[in-house]
Write a protein that binds this DNA or RNA. Structure first.
Lengths: 157, 157
DNA sequence: TACAATTAAATTGAATACAATTTAATTGTA
DNA sequence: TACAATTAAATTGTATTCAATTTAATTGTA
């Protein structure tokens, strides 16, 4: 004789999720980048790797991975492609042969100047209020800070 | 004699992007889902496909794709796996043989009851203020609405 | 009604993601 | 100093994503 509430499964509706819009928006924005990145021969992941290197050159694969939240399983093949494209060099650290250091080539540095307008071009596609962009930015960074910590869950499975 | 502004490349810094935190947060949350989904034998993408089907059963692949922003290239192999797991059936529509309709099996329907606590369990891991979650939710939905429209960019390249 | 245009899935190929394992180098310590 | 433990990349295997192409079915129209 159970009388289920109308919203017994409300929490399982896509529109009530936080993760789904995050996932959908992320993929939609990345798709929007494609024509701008294609011109320069980069994928989106390669682009953020280059951005990280423009900010700080000569870093270990692991340090790049911490910045981008990616591991060597993703980065190793990606960095080999960026090396094959001539944008970076990969060199074992002489002081610690376990470490591979990533360095920008001249061509990799020139790429930054060539791509300096990409963020503005993208912004012209997205149409978001400055305040909304600021709020979204802050909320996402809070969430990432939150998620980057170990944080134990009360799983009680 | 050029005197570049100190922030000539500020727009290319990772911390000034909207897309990067979107992409990072999305992957971090999906990673957090993994232990909860593993117990039920689902990946994250399979989970949102099941959520869409729990809301509306007996839909075409294309309709499911519109809901999830995924195309047949992603969905076809994913749905074959869900079928192999016994959660759905895939059947050609008798009235239009081009269309494949997706239907929940009894096992697929039972899975909803088994997973009804997953959102609450996840919420206990994320620690986000109710207001922040609401704001983030609204901002993301606005962004998705914005991105789903054709919207022409002033590329001027 | 032939048949070109369109549509829906499926397929193909390239590039991620990521868990788990392996390899090689370094570090800590008995 | 041997050598177990640790660390950093690389590798392996599974599962997406997505653009582009292909296949098969349907629709519109001359």
């Amino acid at each position: 004789m159970k009388k289920p509430a109308k919203d017994e499964f409300a929490a399982l509706r896509l529109d009530n999720q936080l993760c789904f819009p995050l996932y959908a928006a992320s993929r939609l924005v990345i798709k929007l980048y494609k024509p701008f990145l294609d011109r320069h021969g980069l994928t989106y992941t390669q682009y953020i790797a280059m951005m990280a290197l423009w900010e700080k050159d000569d870093v270990a694969v692991s340090e790049l991975g911490e910045r981008l939240f990616l591991d060597s399983g993703t980065l190793t093949p990606l960095l080999k492609k960026l090396e094959a494209s001539g944008f970076i060099r990969r060199e074992r650290d002489a002081a610690d042969e376990r470490t591979v250091r990533i360095q920008l080539t001249g061509q990799g540095k020139k790429l930054q100047k060539a791509m300096v307008d990409v963020p503005r071009q993208m912004a012209s596609c997205v149409h978001i209020e400055r305040d909304d962009a600021g709020n979204l930015h802050e909320l996402l960074h809070d969430l990432i800070r939150n998620l980057s910590r170990p944080s134990r869950c009360s799983e009680e499975s």
